[in-house]
Amino acid sequence: MDSRDKRAVGRRPLPAKPVLPDVTAAHRRGPADAVEARWRQPALVWQWHRERQEVLRPGVGYPGIVHLIEVARAERTLRQLYPHTSHFALRLSSRTRYPYALQVPSVPSRHDGRFHVFVPRGGTLLGETGTAEAAVALVVTHLPAGLGPAVAGTADDLRRWRSP
């Protein structure tokens, strides 16, 4: 139990923080290793958050981000892209470094168990689904032609992104 969290007193112990893959070292080995390490990292982190919430707030629903990551990771065409998550949403990039190249629809998971699929960077809703599997299938149908494995971003990419 994390003794700093007073809300956990009298409840079952909080889960231990996961041991995360070294994404920095994976970047040094190349884009393919960075992508693989990055797929493992958010799955572990979000699983830990979900288990922690089950202890601190039993019975309160948790968005399906963990299952969404697992389903997306199992899809061959998406697994070659660099994942990142924020606010219970999965985003995929064709670059392994910032600025990310967001050409793939993003998928926020909702607290009611549903998933929205949005056009990349546009904010336009492509659809709403009841399962992670259906959301991933919708993403796959909207992949740009010729999208290949993620590549390492370069200093030139960052300069172009920053220039007016």
Score class of each variant (00 low, 15 high):
Pro21Glu: 11
Pro149Arg: 12
Ala32Gly: 09
Asp112Cys: 11
Ala25Trp: 02
Phe115Ile: 01
Pro120Lys: 05
His142Phe: 09
Arg162Leu: 15
Glu70Arg: 09
Pro18Phe: 00
Ser106Thr: 14
Leu147Tyr: 03
Leu158Asn: 07
Pro149Gly: 14
His87Asn: 13
Pro15Val: 00
His142Pro: 07
Leu92Asn: 01
Leu14Tyr: 01
Arg50Leu: 08
Arg162Tyr: 09
His27Leu: 12
Ser86His: 14
Leu138Asn: 03
Ala152Phe: 03
Ser93Gln: 03
Gly64Pro: 03
Thr24His: 12
Arg7Asp: 10
Ala8Tyr: 10
Asp157Phe: 04
Ala137Asn: 02
Gln103Ile: 00
Arg57Cys: 14
Ala43Pro: 00
Asp157Lys: 03
Val151Asp: 05
Met1Asp: 12
Gly146Cys: 06
Leu20Pro: 04
Gly122Gln: 07
Val23Asp: 05
Leu126Cys: 04
Ala25Glu: 13
Thr24Ser: 14
Gly146Pro: 02
Trp39Met: 05
Thr77Tyr: 08
Thr24Tyr: 12
Ala132His: 06
Glu133Arg: 07
His111Ala: 14
Arg11Asn: 01
Leu90Met: 03
Gln53Trp: 08
Leu90Ile: 03
Pro58Ile: 08
Gly130Trp: 02
Thr131Glu: 10
Ala72Trp: 06
Arg40Ser: 12
Gly30Asn: 09
Phe118Lys: 04
Gly122Val: 09
Ala89Asp: 02
Gly59Met: 05
Val45His: 05
Ala74Trp: 04
His49Gly: 06
Ala34Arg: 08
Val139Pro: 00
Ser163Val: 10
Tyr62Trp: 11
Arg50Trp: 08
Pro144Ala: 01
Ala25Arg: 12
Gly148Ala: 15
Glu51Lys: 10
Ala145Asn: 12
Arg110Asn: 15
Ser86Ala: 14
Ala137Val: 05
Ala37Glu: 02
Glu128Arg: 14
Thr24Ala: 15
Ser94Gln: 04
Ala150Cys: 01
Ile65Leu: 13
Gly153Val: 01
Thr131Pro: 06
Arg73Trp: 08
Ala135Glu: 01
Thr124Gly: 13
Ala89Pro: 00
Leu102Lys: 10
Ile65Met: 00
Gln41Asp: 15
Leu56Asn: 08
Thr141Leu: 11
Phe118Ser: 05
Val9Leu: 14
Arg73Leu: 00
Lys17Met: 11
Pro99Phe: 05
Pro108Cys: 06
Ala135Asn: 07
Gly130Lys: 09
Leu92Ala: 02
Leu14Gly: 07
Arg73Phe: 01
Pro144His: 06
Ala43Cys: 11
Val19Asp: 15
Glu75Leu: 07
Asp5Ile: 13
Arg4Ser: 15
Tyr100Leu: 08
Pro108Phe: 03
Leu20Gln: 13
Arg160Cys: 02
Glu75Val: 04
Phe115Lys: 06
Arg91Pro: 00
Asp5Glu: 14
Pro164Trp: 10
Arg79Ala: 14
Leu147Phe: 03
Ala26Ile: 04
His49Gln: 15
Val60Asn: 11
Arg95Phe: 01
Ala89Tyr: 01
